[in-house]
Nucleic acid binder design. Structure first.
Length: 402
DNA sequence: TCTGGGGTCCTAGGACCC
DNA sequence: TCTGGGGTCCTAGGACCC
């Protein structure tokens, strides 16, 4: 049976949501109507564009470029900070509205959902459902969405990306040659800035060119990725809408430092803060990790990482931090200016499925109890209400969220 | 120009085993 | 001496997404 899929994509999500929040608080201006962006903080060296208004887009402002660059293109551009707490709230509002149409919803990101409507159409058409959803979101939630209407996820996603904002597009099989093939290959999902130039060198410039390229040739050139791009360009995608809540496979946090650092003790302090943050999230999922990964970015934007396995999976701040410190000492070349430090844990298992729990010793149990007490305080009074002695002086570098 | 932060998946090469 | 073939696991790095 043919799948009936919708892809719902919030238009300029962060900017729209910030605009609504500002209006609610009495702001006289709607930042959707002026050249404006949501951006990072240039003084913290994280000054990139996260979202832009239509007026900013008309100036040529692009997502992920530097704010500096955006201001050159668009003098008088207004910059507003992001607030993930607010975004989560609006994202949940959208999800709850969509739940009234199907329970088979995949939250693809904070502002995108796939809906499997196959069993929920009755007499109505998929397109009419899209119209109804679009109208209700606008009226009830005060922002607009693009909706892609198709028979698989890939085509629905491509369709929602056509023209914006507040549009519904279909992309059925017979529409592929007319609607998708003329587009530049760079528009195809999963073709990024490394692959596109390679395709251009092969004279593959449009999605249609790619669709008509020999599949085996692409496989030889690009491996699995080659097969995937051929299938996508021909509108082939058999993946299911993954509506079940998934546990994460890894959890990581990283920070770009306001200034480069070369002092290993300082790096360790930041690793401790990151270990606290990462394990706090890990414990919230009731999970443990068996692999620790430390990432460093140097001043010239070179990334290096080292990972190591733990003998026994853990979720304690202390053990993760100790492993991280060990990895750091293996990889850090004294005197190298460091721009970014990251810590992530992988190999996650749910609490209770750990086979080696009888290895628990007194020290470990003591740490687990300590972490639990700290977590409860953080949950009650906010993440920054309690902090470890070792990282007191880095608390203001890491902007940790409550 | 001066470049975020959170993820997932893939690949190549090395270690090790039979 | 002069070198297989297959398999698994691990790691570092990279590509891509939003």
């Amino acid at each position: 049976m043919k799948k009936q899929i919708l892809h719902v994509d919030v238009n300029n999500a962060f900017l729209s949501w910030t605009a609504i929040e500002m209006l609610k608080k009495g702001s006289k201006i709607d930042i959707r109507e002026i050249p404006a962006i949501i951006g990072g903080d240039e003084s913290k060296r994280s000054g990139i564009v996260l979202a832009k208004s239509m007026k900013a887009k008309e100036c040529g402002v692009k997502t992920a470029e530097t704010i500096y660059q955006a201001k050159i293109k668009c003098p008088g551009l207004k910059v507003f900070p992001s607030d993930y707490k607010i975004y989560k709230k609006y994202s949940d509002n959208l999800y709850n509205l969509l739940l009234q149409y199907t329970d088979k919803i995949e939250r693809f990101s904070i502002d995108e959902c796939f809906l499997d409507m196959t069993e929920y159409l009755m007499k109505d058409t998929l397109y009419n459902k899209a119209k109804e959803i679009s109208k209700r979101v606008k009226e009830e939630l005060k922002f607009t969405v693009n909706i892609g209407v198709a028979n698989n996820k890939l085509l629905a996603k491509m369709a929602s990306d056509f023209t914006k904002p507040d549009k519904i597009h279909t992309l059925y099989k017979e529409e592929i040659p007319k609607k998708m093939w003329p587009l530049p290959v760079s528009e195809l999902f999963m073709l990024g800035k490394k692959t596109v130039p390679k395709l251009y060198n092969l004279q593959i410039k449009t999605i249609g060119d790619l669709a008509h390229t020999n599949k085996d040739f692409l496989e030889k050139k690009f491996g699995k990725h080659g097969i995937m791009m051929w299938e996508y360009s021909n509108g082939i995608d058999n993946s299911e809408v993954n509506y079940k809540e998934e546990k994460p496979k890894g959890i990581g946090n990283s920070v770009t430092l306001p200034e480069n650092i070369t002092n290993i003790k300082k790096i360790e302090e930041i690793l401790l803060a990151l270990a606290e943050q990462v394990t706090f999230r890990l414990r919230r999922y009731n999970m443990k990790a068996n692999t620790v990964n430390v990432q460093l970015r140097t001043n010239d934007f070179k990334d290096t990482s080292h990972q190591g396995k733990l003998l026994i999976e853990t979720s304690t701040t202390k053990e993760i931090y100790q492993k991280a410190k060990e990895l750091l000492s293996q990889m850090y070349k004294s005197g190298t200016p460091i721009r970014l430090i990251g810590l992530r844990v992988d190999g996650l298992t749910e609490e209770g499925e750990n086979q080696l729990s009888f290895f628990k010793n007194e020290e470990n149990e003591k740490q687990e109890k300590l972490d639990k007490v700290i977590d409860e305080l953080k949950n009650k009074y906010g993440y920054n209400s309690i902090t470890r002695a070792g990282k007191m002086n880095v608390g203001n570098i890491l902007k940790l969220k409550d």
